[in-house]
Amino acid sequence: MPHTPSSPVGLHRVLEPAGATLPQAAQRLDARPELWPDEVRIAIETLNLDAASFRQLSEKHGGDGEAVRAEVLDIVATRGKMQNPVTGSGGMLIGTVEEVGPRSPLGLSVGDRVATLVSLSLTPLVLTDGLERWDGRSERVPAEGHAILFGRSIAAQLPDDLGPDLALMVMDVCGAPALVHRVVAEYVARGHAPTVAVLGGAGKSGSLSLAAAAEAGAARRIAVVPVEREAALLRGTGLAEEVVVADARSPLGLSEAVAAAGGPADVTVVCVDVPGCEQPAILSTAQGGTIIFFSMATSFAAAALGAEGVAADVRMLVGNGFVPGHAAYALDLLRRDPVVRGLFEGRLEEQPVR
């Protein structure tokens, strides 16, 4: 066991820069397997790269899976964590608890199969298999190695009734539906059932957000998707009252499409994994409305300055990925909503683990 004192937020694992930098902002972490008393070590089974990070890597390398795999290995070896240097984001993982420090507050036991609910961008990580079972062409990454959880990390045991890959996909975005439910419920409690527009409505976080908005009492849900193929997945399902095809990066194109579908929206939820959606989301939202940014591709400077530039009185929230009870809520939502479950299972069929 290391002799230096530990920090519940992982300061003791920061190697560069020296000082009080938190693990997420650090350039390099100490990922050795020896535990401090309040830590937990996980034997890795699967990594799930976040959508913005995987898209950036894939586009950078022109879809060359071997090059993507090589860069992921280099990032982890260099930084002691999986943190895309361009997007700053990482993802999450599933695995089995290998060792639990005697003062760990997480309530985990050796042998538990868990999903980490904290970002790989701050999780000490070592890969030992060269990612030989991954072709670099999907977000889900079969892997071997270990990861370290701190005293204030979050992990959830995998449910018995859902496959691990399905559960991982849900837990990866579980903060989105929980926060959408909270925000919509606030509107309803004030006597106004809101119109909710979800950019990226056919995606993982988008479909769960649409279902959560319905449960919380939204009056109208508008799903925005980029192509007709995704629109066809949603039309006739009841997941949204209106499904529109529009480019979420086009300020006038998006705002006009949302207006034609019954907008502007009282609540706009940004779930797309491409940059440049800040101004379009602002113009699609009613004065006094709320925008929730869940995409790691969001520029928050562009959002703030964009709202100021068009005199938009909108509340802008950062979807930080954590709401108390978010994992249990998202998993239950999947169980209750066959449409959402079908969308998730379709994604698994499109991207089988190799």
Rank of each mutant, 00 (worst) to 15 (best):
S207R: 03
D50F: 00
K60G: 06
G80C: 03
D313A: 15
V258A: 02
I292R: 04
V141Y: 00
S109N: 10
S119K: 11
A218F: 09
D165L: 13
A115G: 10
L11I: 04
G309F: 13
G289N: 04
G217H: 14
A77T: 14
P251M: 09
S255G: 11
E278I: 10
A31T: 02
A20N: 08
L343K: 11
V180E: 10
G217Q: 07
D64W: 02
N320A: 12
M82F: 11
M171W: 00
D337T: 03
A259L: 12
Q279F: 07
G191I: 03
H181C: 02
A147Q: 01
D112E: 12
H192S: 06
A248V: 07
G90L: 00
E34F: 10
I222D: 01
L333G: 11
A327C: 02
A297I: 09
S284F: 08
S299D: 04
G91F: 02
R13V: 13
G63T: 08
A167Y: 00
A178L: 08
E39Q: 10
G306F: 01
A143K: 04
I222K: 08
S250F: 04
A211C: 01
G191H: 04
I291N: 15
R335C: 03
H3R: 15
V114I: 11
C174W: 11
Q279I: 15
G321L: 09
R220M: 07
N48T: 05
A189W: 10
K81Q: 03
A193V: 10
L108V: 05
L29K: 01
E39I: 01
A213R: 11
A218Y: 14
D50E: 11
D112H: 13
T96Q: 09
V198C: 12
V310P: 06
G107P: 03
A312I: 06
D64E: 02
F54A: 13
L106C: 09
H181Y: 09
A77D: 15
Q56Y: 14
L122E: 02
A52K: 14
I222H: 00
V196F: 12
G62D: 02
V188D: 09
D332V: 08
G80M: 01
H3C: 07
P2C: 01
V14F: 02
G101V: 07
V310Q: 02
S58Y: 13
A176F: 04
T195D: 06
L93Q: 04
E345Q: 13
L29E: 00
D160C: 11
T46L: 06
A52Y: 13
A281I: 00
P23S: 11
L199S: 03
D30M: 12
A232N: 03
A178D: 13
G91V: 09
T195E: 06
S250Y: 07
F344V: 14
E278R: 12
G191Y: 01
S153Y: 03
V196T: 00
R341W: 08
Q56D: 01
V274M: 05
E139K: 15
Q27K: 14
A286S: 05
V86Y: 11
V76E: 02
Q27N: 12
